[in-house]
Design a protein around this nucleic acid. Sequence first.
RNA 1: GGGCGUGUAGCUCAGCGGUAGAGCGCCGCCCUUACAAGGCGGAUGUCGGCGGUUCGAAACCGUCCACGCCCA
Length: 878
Amino acid sequence: MTENTQQGPARGPQDSTPALPTTYAPAEVEGALYERWVERGYFEADAKSDKPPYTIVIPPPNVTGSLHLGHAFEHTLIDALTRRKRMQGYETLWQPGMDHAGIATQNVVERELGKEGKSRHDMGREAFVERVWQWKNESGGQISGQMRRLGDGVAWSRERFTFDEGLSKSVQTIFKRLYDDELIYRAERIINWCPRCLTAISDIEVEYEEDDGELVSIRYGEGADSVVVATTRAETMLGDTAVAVHPDDERYRHLVGRTIKLPLTERSIPIVADSHVDPEFGTGAVKVTPAHDPNDFEIGQRHGLPAITVMDEHAVITTHGPFQGLDRFEARSAIVAALRAEGRIVSEVRPYRHSVGHCSRCKTTIEPRLSMQWWVKVAPLAKAAGDAVRDGRVTIHPQEMEKRYFDWVDNMHDWCISRQLWWGHRVPVWYGPNGEQICLGPDDEPPAGEGWTQDPDVLDTWFSSALWPFSTLGWPEPTESLAKFYPNSVMLTGYDILFFWVVRMMMFGLYAMDGQVPFGTIALHGMVRDQFGKKMSKSFGNAVNPLDWMDKYGSDALRFTLARGANPGVDVPIGEDWVQGSRNFANKIWNATRFALMNGATVAGPLPAPEQLSATDRWILSRLNSVVAEVDAYYDDFQFARLSDTLFHFAWDEVFDWYVELSKTTFTGGGEAARVSGRVLGEVLDVVLRLLHPVIPFVTETLWTTLTGAESVVIADWPADSGFRDPAAEAEIAEVQRVVTEVRRFRSDQGLQPGQRVPARLTLGGTLLAPHEEAIRQLLRLQPAAEDFHATATLPVAGATVELDLSGAIDVVAERKRLAKDLAAAEKEKDQAERKLGNEGFLAKAPEQVVAGIRTRLAAAESDIARITAQLAALPQG
RNA sequence: GGGCGUGUAGCUCAGCGGUAGAGCGCCGCCCUUACAAGGCGGAUGUCGGCGGUUCGAAACCGUCCACGCCCA
């Protein structure tokens, strides 16, 4: 029972509350409901509260983004978790905010500038950054309005942005600490360079794809001293500084240590032996371009080779007369043509499929580039991140995902954190006129004097996102919020960003918060796919705007569909038909509640003791409590699909179908029995609506407040299993369901219309069915047997007999067919059971209850066979 | 190339050792006074193939085939 339940005499809702509209129209009311929740501050979190904390931070969406189905999915799940915890009495914080999305945002604003015929270089860094802020304030963050549509119960007063003042201070603080601990360093290495975004990106921002390229074999040197090398990137030969062969390769042993002339140039390059060369690939000899290939860079390091950069940041050739000014792909053809003219092309394979890296942001082919960048030395941080999961301080759901996590943290490369952008946290390092390099904390003044300049690069957006679980709470200040809400309870996000984000939060959380994990649980969800299980993409044309479906079917319908598809870590397909189905469910709840209210459903007064209840009432209450327990267990295990499905079937099939139908005669009968059932129905609805609220908050709010007259289901108590179970009542109702189903099948086989009244005589004496005669008659449209009653069909069911008078209209053929089919099924069942019971191994080794179960089945099958055989014999010939 | 995963009803997916399930779709009947966004009834599967373990396999093991994802 809820704290809002009002004591006192029963009152119909008509007395004090407006009747529900006859039509369920979600789009018209959802917005107002949400605004009221926000105004009343239900979603705000109080750091001074003495309730236990429950914290989830939003995986911050890009400031450039708008709500897509992936967000809708993730937010539905987080909202369900936090709404339930709030109802359970936790001080619940769902922390909202966005990230500044360095590359994406800069791209957006640069495109705008482009339309005005300007570039960011025309306006300068400071003015450009100001312009981006202006864009952010005017056009950014559309998603927060859309989150309201969805019903997200976030603490809006705490909304944060990775680039706001406080979070920027967090970034600078941790940078300085890592720098001082020598976990951040600067080094010249080969990095992944995007010649379109004009910045370095980290390894995980590179997407590899099979592309059609070409494999060209080129002869270097002359005559007997020549070697043939194969390459897919002929244009880089201008930067070759060696040819490498395997040290054990007999074919080339005589050449190692000698030099060879590099075609098209005046340079001679050495032939070196390196055990990393694969003698099986191509000719076994490879060209070495240390400035344009990561593997070649390593060979170069091992052999002290120079690294010659032959392209600029746009990937345009900068050297060698005829090729200068060509971009890399033009240069490739030109160089192959030039080599062919010299007779140096030994073979060409075209197309040659091979794996090529692309910028995850703009799909441009990555150009490995030698450059000076900032790095995080991840080894000690990743070790700690791995250990936290290994020793159980952090658990991953579903558990199978742990392996992927370990594979990643245990083999992580240093993280390139500098980006050649203007929009982002600038590296807080200054260089002095005499080669000084100092790192500034947030409270330090930049060095005075001539000749000091700040590093021009900014930090990877993930660097600031990694601080999100604590920077949003005020870190590095020792705030009350930080004390109350850190560590977070759960990190719920997609498995696709386990490496991008989760690992980084783990590393930085453990480091910044003195070994305290950022969250106790990582719950991973899958990706939203279309109704055929295909990945959604704009280019494929199957992307859906969730707002359209929310307009059409209501936010609850979208949410329920997503929750119902959410198996842990598994992709969830979604189609419009399914959203429509969820809308139908909401509509069903709506109408069932209307019906209940019209029939005196109430939460007023104490629930009558079991002795005062009918078996039907005890049955539904018994089931209700089982469902409460099941749903709770599913919630604790992030089984959104199962809890949604459980509630769907319990509400629709059991409450709104069987219970309501079985109780109709009670309600029409009036009196004390009707009053008692009204109270039970009120109780069941109250609990079901509260159980459903976290998943479908809007429709449940309207119905629950109407039913109870209380303020809001958002702040209602979460239902608890009272422990009440009544197996006898459950068995009794199962018998009722069985007889009703059997007779309905008979009626249907006989071609009777569903509403057609048929005279019948029920012999129920001594069976569990006896108290339910009225309800059974009602459900089966059976009229009392009159004087001239003449049974033309006799159905023995569950120890009782139902005789019908179809006035000779019985369809013997249909009935014989039906019975023959049932007989065959029963005989098959009997066969299987007998075979098992005749198996000594089974009897000896199977658990007792399984054997008993088979015995029961055998008995049931035998009685079915007897019953059906009798029915067949009783049928008129014909 | 390495790793992970998936193949169950027309579609999308649960089930993961003890009678094959759901939603949607399909067929038939019905506007039965909460709901046609509904009700009643029905059909539909050698649980990818082949071996093995087991009293018993959709489930466990091996293998093959077909897809997917991640990493190189």
